[in-house]
Design a protein around this nucleic acid. Structure first.
Length: 930
RNA sequence: GGGCCUAUAGCUCAGUUGGCUAGAGCGCACGCCUGAUAAGCGUGAGGUCGGUGGUUCAACUCCACCUAGGCCCA
């Protein structure tokens, strides 16, 4: 007679090597190595060869520093698209790239090496520096589980890329869109060089603070009849009197109110809100407001320069503020950013009578040759003498200084290269293209459109070394720029062979075709030393990288970047593509939010709230990060912190364990053991129908790039449908039935198909774990050697069954009611395990009939030993009342059900009839002929 | 300061064109199980829908303003 120990051996408990705990930090690198070894990347490509392509074009990250959370978010999202499109059946090659040129790297190199390096040397070191970080970031991205052509990424510093960038610049030259103009930049007068914003340090500096009056020329009556014959002035405030010789306008805000203030016999125009402060600063004692006007009324006035014989126009502008000053803003288009924009908008000259060393040119009467800071007090004294200086003080304020020599810098218009937005209709065509692109989220269209509509011409020159040179020359004789598209192409061919370093290593003669001469006839030319804006560099990637011949057709199906790229890469890619190919380079643009800390603040070193993806990978694994990315609505900014990570770890464990159950219960299952659909239990068909429904939901969500919907759908399916219901109910059938019985094989068939479907759906999100599952699920040999070579299951579709799902809905509600009743009984200490219970259900007519259709399955579905249905005439149709009592009979030591049949089998006192039969079937007890 | 965006339970998300006591899962609390066991199951408690005002018979949903935060520009 078998004892208890032997009984345990007669049930079919799960067996698997798929461990409960993953230890992702060690598992992931192991799987990466396996993929490397089997050449998975190549196999995926050849498996999809000839299929329709889906191209996600990679926005190149900057090759500087280790990856941060934003990189991880971006690359994982891209990978979710590439992997899900691949599993949808597309050929979706992903060619990653790096942005290698630019100031940050140049600064690092120049700082390390101090001054005195020749330009070629600087470029070589920059190149090395960029290469180093490409290597570092490449490994970090691969570690995230991102699939791509990591062996052949595109680099904006490659010969090919630099040459093509130069050629594309040539296309704009060809069209006549490139011109040379002026634009104010930060300028260090002691280093005599332009400075980028990043090279400027802010420090306290004391400056004069002056109020200066600009007389209104004529027309005071037109402003207001009361003002006839009065002396009216605009009163401006500035801390840079030296910019006054370059004044060309006075700005007012159209919506502010301006008071005309009578002080002695003069009238000053001052913003009403600033009146008291200005009066105090200027020491006005007796004053009265003559009238108050809206800024709008100050349109089209003409003032005279305080001492020069020159007009200063009034301009209405939104940048005027009430923070300081008078509400009337001195505007010198050559010496300020807003001033410059006003100048462009209103056709003023970008006038800058200051030379490289910060001295006034001969253009400036009275002060020519003076250095601007030294000129300040002299100008003030001069104005005082002229009676135009209303007040003078000194203030200490934050002021830009040169990062190298620490002297205060000035803002000064310098010659720069531009691409005209309106030449060749570039702006209008770009705006038209924006409307043809699908923007996710859709407000992107509005944002991009209005940005294009309002932006000034594109300043494409930088006074730097590490980039693609602007391949223009200057005539030494007539001093005009010598810029020809044929020459640009000629030079680009040299770059192709030697990289753009050739611009620095070769002489002018070695760069130019023989016999090149300026239109003035001169043959003496010299090189331009400006380089192209890096946004021009990266904006060309679509044209350079996307080539039909390389299975990367243009335009890209998708661009996906953070919101800073509306101004950056989305923008420059569009302008270049429209300029060169007359169409947008992308069909869809997806914009994700920023990653923030747990409190919703931006991460920064100074705040000390930075979460490194490298740390998370080391501690929890890349898949925890991937789970995070898939769980959030990435179109908004997303938080990450300790609690969220801990929730994610728990979610991962739940998913892993839920999948582990079927894997463990399929240890003795294979294709040959599959049961036909007719052999499946209704419950199995229900579970398959739920899987089919969830699969459909998830696939549709993948198509809409709504990964969090995928995550929530699959996670809830695992938790609600599988773990707490289907799998829990199935334990009895799997463990207790004879191993090869139809009942058990039916359950296994369903489990197998569900797992097979589920693991494919989860593979884009959890590529490592799903690969591990795949190996275990197909331990006896599978259709393909990696889950990443499969497609989403189409086989599951046959189980879609809306009617069946509807039929089961009420049952699941009743099950909840039963659970409540069981819980109450448990609280009363009447039962512990639900198998100790009999459930009595008083039913209304309809419920009675409904529940009867589930017949003997009910007790298994509720996981109780007995269900008693009674029709109760006092209950209306669908109503039921549930009560719980102790189950009759003893506990079967094998299946743990409490049944009257336990003890009725000779020689096996603690066994129920069902178990007795199973034991006979598997030959543990002898079959007795009845 | 300007443009664009966001704000629903501790967390991550749902809430269709304004209309039933605002939903889910997790977490938490309490309990069960010990044949998924560093697992599994059940029950329960959590929300003035960022705030204020307005439109409406009715607002989480529409409008205005404010607050907090994000990106870009200044």
């Amino acid at each position: 007679m078998p004892d208890q120990l032997d009984l345990k051996k007669t049930i079919n408990l799960p067996k698997t090597d798929f461990s409960m705990r993953a230890n992702l930090p060690t598992l992931e690198p192991r799987i990466l190595a396996q993929w490397e070894e089997m050449g998975l990347a190549k196999k995926i490509r050849s498996a999809r060869k000839g299929r329709k392509t889906f191209i996600l074009h990679d926005g190149p990250p900057y090759a500087n520093g280790h990856i941060h959370l934003g990189h991880a978010l971006n690359k994982i999202l891209k990978d979710l698209i590439v992997k899900s499109k691949t599993m949808e059946g597309y050929d979706s090659p992903y060619l990653p790239g790096w942005d290698c040129h630019g100031l940050p790297i140049e600064i690092k190199v120049v700082r390390q090496k101090k001054a005195g390096m020749d330009l070629l040397k600087v470029r070589q070191q920059c190149r090395e520096y960029a290469r180093k970080f490409v290597e570092i970031q490449r490994e970090e991205f691969k570690r995230l589980g991102v699939f791509g052509e990591w062996d052949s990424p595109y680099l904006t510093m490659s010969n090919e890329y630099e040459a093509e960038t130069a050629r594309l610049f040539g296309r704009f030259v060809e069209k006549g869109s490139v011109y040379k103009g002026f634009k104010p930049v930060h300028w260090c007068i002691s280093c005599e060089t332009a400075l980028a914003e990043a090279e400027v340090e802010y420090a306290d500096h004391s400056s004069p603070s002056v109020y200066v009056k600009f007389p209104l020329v004529g027309g005071s009556t037109s402003l207001h009849p009361q003002l006839a014959d009065r002396k009216v002035f605009a009163l401006i405030w500035t801390t840079t009197p030296w910019t006054l010789p370059a004044n060309l306008a006075v700005c007012f805000h159209p919506n502010f109110e301006y008071s005309l203030l009578e002080v002695e016999d003069e009238i000053y125009i001052i913003a009403r809100e600033l009146l008291e402060r200005v009066a105090q600063e200027c020491g006005f004692e007796d004053y009265r407001i003559v009238i108050t006007l809206r800024g709008e009324a100050l349109k089209n006035l003409v003032f005279r320069h305080p001492w020069l014989d020159r007009e200063s126009k009034s301009i209405l502008a939104d940048h005027v503020t009430l923070e300081q000053g008078t509400g009337a803003v001195h505007t010198a288009p050559g010496h300020g950013h807003d001033d410059y924009l006003m100048g462009i908008e209103h056709g003023l000259q970008i006038y800058c009578p200051v030379d490289d060393s910060g001295r006034f040119t001969s253009d400036v009467e009275h002060f020519a040759g003076l250095q601007v800071f030294e000129a300040n007090p002299k100008i003030n004294r001069f104005m005082a003498e002229k009676g135009v200086l209303v007040a003078e003080k000194t203030i200490v304020h934050s002021y830009p200084h040169c990062w190298r020599c620490h002297n205060p810098v000035i803002f000064r218009a310098t010659p720069q290269w531009f691409i005209s937005l309106d030449h060749a209709d570039l702006r209008r065509r770009a705006i038209e293209e924006v409307k043809l692109v699908r923007w996710i989220p859709n407000w992107g269209q509005e944002r991009m459109g209005s940005m294009l509509a309002n932006r000034p011409d594109w300043c494409i020159s930088r006074q730097r070394v590490w980039g693609v040179p602007i391949t223009s020359f200057y005539c030494k004789k007539c001093e005009k720029p010598f810029l020809r598209s044929e020459i640009v192409d000629h030079v680009a061919d040299i770059f192709q062979k030697e990289s753009a370093d050739a611009w620095y290593s070769r002489s002018v003669a070695e760069l130019l075709p023989d016999g090149t001469r300026c239109q003035c006839g001169n043959t003496e030319l010299e090189k331009e030393y400006d380089i192209l804006d890096v946004w021009f560099d990266s904006g060309t990637s679509q044209h350079i990288v996307l080539r039909e011949a390389e299975n990367l057709p243009w335009p890209a199906d998708v661009y996906l970047e953070g919101p800073d790229q509306y101004r950056g890469w989305f923008h420059s890619s569009l302008l270049i593509a429209v300029g060169v190919r007359n169409a947008a380079p992308y069909r869809t643009v997806i914009c994700h939010g920023f990653s923030l800390d747990a409190e919703g603040h931006a991460m920064s070193k100074s705040r000390g709230n930075v979460i490194s993806p490298l740390d998370v990978m080391k501690k929890d694994g890349a898949e925890i990060l991937r789970l995070w990315v898939s769980s959030i609505d990435y179109t908004e900014d997303s938080r990450l912190g300790g609690e969220i990570l801990s929730r994610l770890r728990e979610a991962y464990r739940k998913l892993r364990n839920t999948i582990r159950f079927p894997v463990g219960n399929l240890f003795d299952f294979g294709a040959s053991k599959q049961v036909s659909n007719e052999g499946l239990f209704e419950l199995d068909r229900w579970a398959l129908a739920r899987m089919a429904w969830a699969a459909h939901q998830a696939e549709e969500a993948y198509k809409r790039f709504e990964f969090h919907v995928v995550y929530h759908t699959l996670y809830n399916f695992c938790v609600v449908d599988l773990s707490s219901f289907y799998l829990d109910v199935l334990k009895d059938r799997l463990y207790i039935s004879a191993p090869d019985s139809l009942a058990r094989r039916a359950a296994q068939t369903a489990l197998f198909r569900i797992t097979d479907t589920l693991v494919r759906l989860l593979a884009p999100i959890l590529p490592f774990t799903c690969e591990e599952v795949w190996k275990n699920l197909y331990s006896h040999g599978g259709p393909v050697e990696s889950v990443h070579l499969t497609e989403f299951s189409r086989e599951i579709d046959q189980y879609q069954d809306k009617k069946l799902l509807e039929r089961w809905e009420p049952l699941l509600k009743i099950r909840t009611q039963v659970s409540k009743a069981l819980e109450e009984s448990r609280q009363r200490k009447e039962i512990g395990n639900s198998l100790e219970a009999t459930v009595n259900i008083q039913c209304g007519r309809r419920s009675f009939e409904y529940l009867q259709t589930f017949s003997e399955h009910l007790r298994f579905l509720f996981i109780v030993s007995h269900v008693e249905l009674t029709e109760a005439s006092e209950l209306s149709g669908e109503k039921i009342e549930v009560s719980v009592s102790k189950a009759l009979g003893e506990k079967c030591e094998r299946c743990w059900n409490h049944l009257p049949s336990v003890g009725t089998h000779a020689g096996l006192p603690m066994i129920c009839s069902r178990c007795y039969e199973v034991l006979q079937e598997i030959g543990v007890v002898k079959k007795v002929p009845s």
